[in-house]
Structures are given as C-alpha cells and as structure tokens.
Design a protein around this nucleic acid. Structure first.
Length: 369
RNA sequence: GCGUCGUUGGUGAAGUGGUUAACACAGUGGAUUGUGGUUCCACCAUGCGUGGGUUCGAUCCCCACACGGCGCC
C-alpha cells in the first residue's frame, strides 16, 4: 500500500501526525537517521530500534554502485538485506550528483546527468526513470523524485532553468513509477528565490505525490536564508500530506522547521559528529576529546536515557576517541541519534499540549546559552 | 688520557651569518546539515648543550667546558 498521513493536531504552524506504512506507523514530527549504504554507520537495527528510530534513510546512488540494486532485490529487498523491519526511505541520487561531483566534471542534460563514479571513475548516466527503477528494486517504503540540488549561491537564471528541469524530471519519474506498494515524494527546489520556491511548490503539488520534500537547503547558505527558503515553499504544500525538509539538521534547525510545519527531517549530523567525538547535549554541542573531560566521570547528559548515558562516562568516551577506538563512535552515535529523537518526542508532546513555541524557546535558551 | 663525530620543541628530525627556525607525529582548540567513514583548518621552540669571542648582527664562524657515540692507548 501507499503510505497514509493522518494529521492529529496543529499548534500554530507546527503539526503532529502519523504516517502509516507497510512497515509500521511512525509519529511526526520525526527525525530519520541516515543509513546510506543500507546501514546506519556503526549501528545495528536493534540499536536503532532501542533509540526510538522510525524511518531511516538509504541511498539510491550508493546502492546502485554497490552492491547493485539487483543484488538487493535478490536478497528480498532492502529490509531483508539489511535486517531492518521498520520503514525505509530512499533518496534518489540527485544529491550525490551535487555532493560527489561538486568539483568534478558533470554534465546535466535534459535527459539526465552524466558523471563519474566516485569509486572507480567509470562513466555513469542517471536519469529520472533509472532512479525510479533502482528504488523500485530496492523496495523502500518511500522513494524520492530525481532532482537537481542547486548549489548556493546560484543566479536567478540558473535556478529557474534547473527548477523547471527538476519539475520535468519529477513528471517523468512519476510516469515511470508503477509500484503500488511504494510511495513517491516530490521535491521542491527554487533556490533562494521566493517566487521560484512558490512556483516549484505549486507545480510539484499539481503533479501529485504521496508527500512533498523541500530540497536544496543546507548547502552553504546562512540559517536565516534557509528558514526563509522553507517559509517560501511550505505554505503552498497540502495539509494532508507529509512534508519533509531534506538534509536538516542541527537541533535548532529541526525546531525551526517544526515551527514552520515540517513533519520529517533527515541528517547525517548525529552520526558524523559522533564519529568525530562531538556530542549533542541540552546545553549545546561538546567535543569529548577536549582535555577538560579527562577526569569527568559523569555521563554526557544526566537527563539522557540512552544506553550510552546509562553506562558510560565522558572520561571513558574521551579515552576511546583519543585511542581511536571505534566503540567511541558507536556509543556516541547512539547518544546523538537518541538526542534528536527524544527532542522529537518532546516536540510532539508540546504540540499536543499547545505549547510548542514555549518548548522551542526554552530548549533554545539552554542549547544556545 | 688522546683522537674523532655529534648535541635544534614532548618525540623524530630539516635548516640558514640577517625580518615570523621547515616538516612529521604527539598535544591543544575549531569545523562538519538529502554521509566519497578516520577528514579538513588553526595553534603549538622569545629559542637551536653551557660560557666566552669574532661580527653592525650568530643557532649557523672561532675557543673553552659539559654530555653522548665510535676508535686508540
């Protein structure tokens, strides 16, 4: 079946809802950990479950290159292959064209994108139709339209042309998409131009998708610009479909997104920061490698209920990072993901109680002190 | 005792008669937003064994001493 979105409660623009999928229901607003290569780096599905994770994100481009979508299909689909029975969303590969080929040759044509494999340099050609076919074989719950993530800054003309092409790609992808067990989201582009964001949102909605994402943010612009991009797009999205802000973000960005009516987020930050010893805490980010934690035998956060905070001290984690032991990254990934997911739980609660803005203000006051 | 070579930061070490003494590791901070998994950036010797001398100027040249390696008695 296709996913279904049920709106439970609104508090100003903030929304609380439920998404029903073939692999269980998840509550929104929600945060999706990123598991690019059919794994959330360093964590097992059991650990993800314990941390309260709902949907996880995986990646078309990376799985296309290895192990190849046919192998995943033979394994019985992504869920079986990676032993994860919760919902999975696959990104289309559009972002990788932007991020992997940033300083390299890439050729974006009407038909699709020519670029080179980051693994062996072989020539690749990705089209909206191919992205749909791959995602189909991966058998994720939610597939994403193939889009171009526009760099920042970009000229009006470039942004307009790219945004229009992404719309044509969205139409082609949708036409090629013939799987009633999988849902498909459209992606709003439009760069930092309000009229193009509006245009992209309205036209994408006209095509008709199971959900709508806002893309092309957190690509180097400042935060105010990013929040403005969201404002310029989200008001044109239908209330009865989930809204997904792609690639975001930091705790404050998630709260700002929820304020503006976003339901779903994904970001590599909790796991990437964890691998570099950075921990989220209610008082801001800390770097566990700092010498001041050498003899700090308290947990990262006494308020945190995660496995790591229940059993380990900052001094021990610091030791693991200084000694370059992988367990440090694992334990901190658990904490960082839990931190964001717990924040989402609190946000949902606050929306239900009608005091989300107060929750956000008090969170930010502590976090950014 | 004599001869000889050497003595540069926490470590391994480059180097030059003249403004800030390479580089690497370690250390200390910072970065990281639809993940090219151990990355990137910054800081880190007021001093080149000690004491004299030559010189406008010495870590670099000269002398003595100390310490260490090697060789000889």
């Amino acid at each position: 079946m296709k996913i279904k979105y049920e709106l439970l409660k609104t508090d100003k623009n903030a929304r609380r809802g439920i998404i029903y999928t073939n692999h269980g229901k998840v509550e929104t607003p929600m945060f999706m950990p990123v598991g690019t290569l059919a794994n959330v780096k360093m964590l097992t599905p059991e650990e993800l479950k314990e941390v309260g994770s709902g949907i996880i994100l995986s990646n078309t481009y990376h799985l296309w290159l290895r192990p190849g979508e046919d192998i995943v299909k033979k394994a019985g689909g992504l869920h079986k292959f990676m032993h994860y029975d919760g919902p999975i969303l696959t990104d289309s590969g559009g972002f990788q064209v932007f991020s992997l080929a940033k300083n390299k040759k890439k050729d974006i044509t009407e038909e699709g994108v020519h670029f080179k494999s980051h693994i062996d340099g072989q020539k690749l050609f990705l089209t909206p139709e191919l992205s749909m076919e791959i995602q189909n074989k991966l058998d994720s719950d939610i597939a994403m339209s193939f889009d171009e993530c526009i760099p920042y800054p970009a000229t009006y003309e470039y942004t307009k042309n790219s945004t229009e092409r992404t719309l044509r790609w969205a139409k082609r992808g949708k036409d090629a998409f013939k799987n009633d067990q999988q849902s498909l989201f459209g992606i709003v582009q439009g760069g930092a131009y309000a009229d193009l964001r509006k245009y992209s949102a309205l036209e994408t909605v006209k095509l008709g998708f199971d959900g709508y994402a806002i893309g092309g943010t957190s690509v180097g612009e400042d935060k105010e610009t990013m929040y403005q991009m969201v404002d310029d797009a989200v008001k044109y999205l239908p209330v009865d479909k989930p809204r997904y802000l792609m690639g975001v973000g930091e705790p404050e960005d998630l709260l700002e997104g929820i304020s503006r009516g976003i339901d779903m987020f994904d970001c590599v930050l909790p796991t990437r920061l964890a691998r570099h010893a950075n921990a989220f805490t209610e008082n801001g980010k800390i770097n566990l490698k700092n010498a001041k934690y050498k003899e700090d035998f308290t947990p990262i956060s006494s308020d945190c209920d995660c496995y790591t905070c229940r059993h380990y001290t900052k001094a021990y984690l610091r030791h693991l990072f200084v000694a370059k032991e992988a367990l440090g990254g694992r334990l901190l990934s658990i904490h960082n993901i839990r931190f964001l997911i717990k924040m989402m739980e609190e946000a949902r609660e606050a929306i239900t109680n009608g005091n989300f803005e107060e929750y956000k203000a008090s969170f930010l006051k502590k976090y950014k002190n």
